[in-house]
Structure formats: C-alpha cells, structure tokens
Write a protein that binds this DNA or RNA. Structure first.
Lengths: 151, 151
DNA sequence: AAAGATTGAGTTGTCAATCTTC
DNA sequence: GAAGATTGACAACTCAATCTTT
C-alpha cells in the first residue's frame, strides 16, 4: 500500500479516535454510577448556563453541541420532560424559543460537575503535563477549525 | 465556582471533544460525497482484512470496534445485505461465525482508503507540525490507557 | 451451564417535510 | 420567501431475552 498518510500523522489520528471513545465512555460510566445526568444532558445544561442571559436559542444550542436542529429539539424535549429546562417564547421574535434552566436543572448541573470534573482530571488532564495540555488545546483547536464545513 | 479542573486542562478537554466531533463528521461527509462506504463500514472492512486469516469472529469484531455483540450483528447484517461481507460457519465450532470479505468488500476497502486518507490529512495531519503529531499521539495514547475499565 | 450469536423492544440521533412568524 | 423550530419516518445502536451448540 502506498503511504498516503505520514506514519506519525496516522498514529496521531488513531490515538485521537481511540482516546476519545475510551475517555467519553468511561466518563459516562462514572456519571451513571454516581446517579448523575448523562453527558449529553450535562452539555445542554452547561451550554445554557454559560450563555449570555443564561438562555439559549434552540438553533445556538444545536451548534454548540454539534447537533442538527432536530437533534437539539429531541434532546431538549427529554430534559424538559425531566424538568431540567423549560422553553421560553418571547415577544421580540415569536418564531424562536429560548431554552432556560429550571431550579432542578441548575441543581443537576452543580451536582454533576464534581463527578464530571473528576473524570476529566483522572482520564485526561492528569496524564498530560501542563505543556502538553496547552499544546494539545492549541493543536486540536486548529483541527476543529479545519474541519468546519467552511474550512 | 471552585476550579476543579485546571484552566489549561479544561481548554484541552473541550478542544479534544469538539475537534473529534467536527473532524469525524467532516470525513463522513467527504466519504459520502465520493460515493464511498461510511466510516463505520470502513472500520469493519479494515478489521476483517487485517485479522489473521482475513476472517474475524463476530465477538472479536465487536471488541475491535468498541461495540456490543448485538451492535456488531446489526452492522454486519447491513454489510452482508450490501454484498461486502459474508458469514462463514465452520465445523470446528458450529456456534460461531466468521465474517469474511467478498470481492466487493475488498474493492470497497481499496477505493475508500484514498478518500479517507485525504480527509485525515486535510482535517487533522496537515494542521499539525511533525512535532505536534508525535506529541499528540503520545499524549492521547496515555489518555486511552488511563480510560480503560481496568485503569 | 456457558459461549457464540441473533432478535425484540426501546433510545437517540438524522433527513426531509411542515408549521409559524418575520 | 426565508428563518426558527418541530414532527414523521427511518437509521444505528443498546439491553435483556432467546436459540443453538459445546
């Protein structure tokens, strides 16, 4: 086989894919074991909580989470049924809806964070040196940029 | 909020998650546009092709791809319907089945690789320096190790 | 009984079509 | 007509139960 990808590059790619699968599924297990919300829900809670005004358009939620709009709708539906968020429609633009957290949503966010943070540390941050962490952040930010539909 | 994860570490984690989502979905798009098999199918073809004897137990296919056994069954079903693989039962042990590639499966593997390789280069390798590629490979290999159920 | 594999039911996402509001 | 969001139909996986062979 011709070498279409440089060897070091291919090794990096494989490590990238495998590390992601391993770390994410491991953190899911830890959250579940601690009785916390799943990662996908946590991501929703964080996105809303850190948005300006602590509210987020469905459209922006989708793009934050790298989901389609309908995917974001389904996901928000489940959190709404669980009582963690509600949709607020406003008179500024009655087409759209804002997702906002309920008290239970804010509580779920607070209680899940220590568990999630422990996972991030244990399975990711702790195995990197400080220099590596900065370099990885920088390098992978460029990967995201290159992978966007426009780029 | 107390800082449970060092800032640089958290940035690296976020970049890691977002870069993965962006790069994988972008490569899927490129494969689709070129009329090639989806990434999940490609992974099946590679796993079988690189197994000893170029055949793979369903159980081993599942573990290679980080899937459940039933997930592997469903996936293999689809490739079998598409004519890319077939199941072979042998007399050594009539419980199990081996997945083996058909001629069409081998051809799909050969033709998809250049497209996949171009995606890996364009959206990942090309935005890294050679040093970064080596460092990322090394660092993320440790992440995978730390995330395994045993570790 | 245990191992290999599959099937039925349910979950979570996508795409295309639709509804409402601008 | 276009933008924001949702819905219907379907795709790909998981878990628990099942079937066959050891």
């Amino acid at each position: 086989v011709a070498e279409l990808v440089p060897k070091d590059g291919l090794n990096a790619w494989k490590a990238f894919v495998r590390a992601h699968a391993a770390a994410i599924s491991r953190i899911e297990v830890e959250l579940e074991a601690a009785g916390m919300v799943p990662l996908a829900w946590y991501d929703v809670l964080v996105a809303i909580s850190s948005a300006p005004g602590r509210r987020l358009r469905m459209r922006d939620l989708a793009s934050e989470l790298v989901l389609t709009r309908s995917g974001a709708t389904r996901l928000a539906d489940r959190l709404e049924v669980a009582g963690l968020l509600k949709r607020e429609r406003t008179d500024e633009d009655r087409r759209g809806a804002f997702a906002v957290l309920t008290a239970a949503g804010r509580r779920a966010l607070r209680t899940a964070w220590p568990v999630y943070a422990r996972g991030i540390n244990q399975f990711f941050v702790d195995v990197l040196t400080a220099d590596e962490a900065r370099l990885v952040a920088d390098a992978l930010a460029r990967v995201e940029g290159a992978s966007r539909p426009s780029g």
